[in-house]
Design a protein around this nucleic acid. Structure first.
Lengths: 246, 246
DNA sequence: GACAAGAGATAACCTAGGTTATAGGGGCGT
DNA sequence: ACGCCCCTATAACCTAGGTTATCTCTTGTC
């Protein structure tokens, strides 16, 4: 059962980019380790740790961050179920970020040296790897725009809408309403805002009926409304070109 | 002469990551087009253009940016001689950024579909491709930290020091003093600052003997001093692991 | 079930950096 | 040689968002 192709985190993820033939699926499957539980707030790795594998997040949420000397923190990315964590650090011997669980989560490890098998035996998988990192970069670029040129209201709205789009990709059941396990300080640290100001801004959003706030947890009530606040354009999340080069 | 491996932009770039055997060098060489001149301020491509190749910047400087509806601009990256431009957009059919020349420049095109040859015939080249995108991502991550959590002084100092490191990589002759073709408004747009505030901050830096300002052009006089202002740590530029997996 | 620790709301106050305006200088096209 | 435009400097003024401080409400722990 556990060896079933349909249960594999990484096979599922790769399939969302292009169709895989049986051989590729088996190859991926054989190289991935089974899922393991990681409770909320545990550190998956620290900056400077040896970097020898990446993970697929089969359940739960996580985020990567960097701590500065002055004690502040910059959250670099948020990972939702189905995401690949750590591909970024691929060619560094040591991790260049830290990753923490936002949630009770479950991860499947994928030893990095197994990538050799992939590169040498499947052009398709190799291409998909590039698609994944490419989409990843596109998200980072948009985050730069967000941090550099938008107001607090826009930053928050944009970030939340982006996450809702990313959730839709692998977790089908999202319409116009969904809830995220994100505290206000995580959001502040992701967007270069203070937690206090996130709270202030959420008060406005609440009054406008855009969302509800809970405890380390918030509920988006009106995603279209948030898109309007952010001036959101999803072009940068568009599914990358698929098998045109296969 | 033009077909000489030692003159090829892309061969030079790839060699800075790992040693290439003769076959790999010839392969790269055969797939790259000769250099072509691009005068200052010309647009290499616009957002939404068809994306069918990337380039190596053999001479001159360029930057990628995105324009927002409100007329502001976010500069996403600055390219120095030797850099690869456009690898980011690899798996998007349309460009997701625009690129403009900061300088009279010279570029070699590399048609994207040629990557198939590379992936299928050389494990080494495939690995180097990943190293390049990986380092690229590391730079973006650090830029996020810069935009999210640092003061204007720190942002500017950090950015300038980073560029001086990147210059050293492919352009050997940089000691403690070098000059960059960057206007204050480009810097502002890259760092989420107003051009006015860049000017104010440069006035301080000038008084402190850190740099000299010119016309669309500035000269770093004391790189160590700037590193101190920024609290700079070059770990994220460290040469990625090389042929450990070859 | 008590307590400590984290998460959020809200208010008062403050400052880094944005905005607008003016003016001078250099490079470039004709 | 003229004129234009872009780049830069600098000053006066203003505001978005940071900081600090309290209080409350959860939640996880022993």
């Amino acid at each position: 059962m556990d060896n079933d192709v349909d249960n594999s985190c990484i096979v599922k993820h790769f399939k969302s980019y292009a169709t895989l033939d049986e051989k590729d699926q088996q190859l991926l499957l054989s190289l991935e380790e089974g899922p393991r539980a990681w409770p909320k707030n545990t550190i998956l790795w620290h900056q400077n740790d040896q970097s020898d594998c990446f993970y697929t997040l089969s359940k739960g949420w996580a985020c990567s961050f960097r701590e500065l000397k002055d004690g502040t923190r910059q959250v670099l990315d948020i990972y939702v179920p189905g995401d690949i964590v750590g591909l970024r650090e691929f060619s560094f011997q040591k991790r260049i970020t830290s990753v923490i669980m936002l949630n009770d989560a479950e991860l499947c490890a994928f030893p990095r040296h197994h990538l050799d098998h992939i590169f040498s035996s499947s052009l398709m998988l190799c291409n998909i790897m590039f698609m994944i990192t490419s989409r990843d970069q596109a998200i980072l670029l948009e985050r730069l725009v967000n941090l550099g040129r938008r107001s607090a209201r826009e930053k928050l709205a944009h970030f939340l809408v982006e996450i809702s789009y990313r959730l839709q990709r692998t977790n089908a059941r999202v319409e116009d309403h969904l809830s995220l396990p994100l505290s206000q300080s995580v959001l502040g640290d992701a967007l270069g805002l203070s937690a206090v100001h996130v709270s202030r801004t959420f008060q406005e959003f609440r009054r406008e009926g855009l969302l509800k706030t809970g405890n380390s947890h918030l509920e988006l009530l009106d995603i279209r409304g948030l898109e309007a606040v952010a001036g959101f354009d999803a072009f940068y999340l568009e599914p990358p070109i698929s098998d045109s080069r296969s």
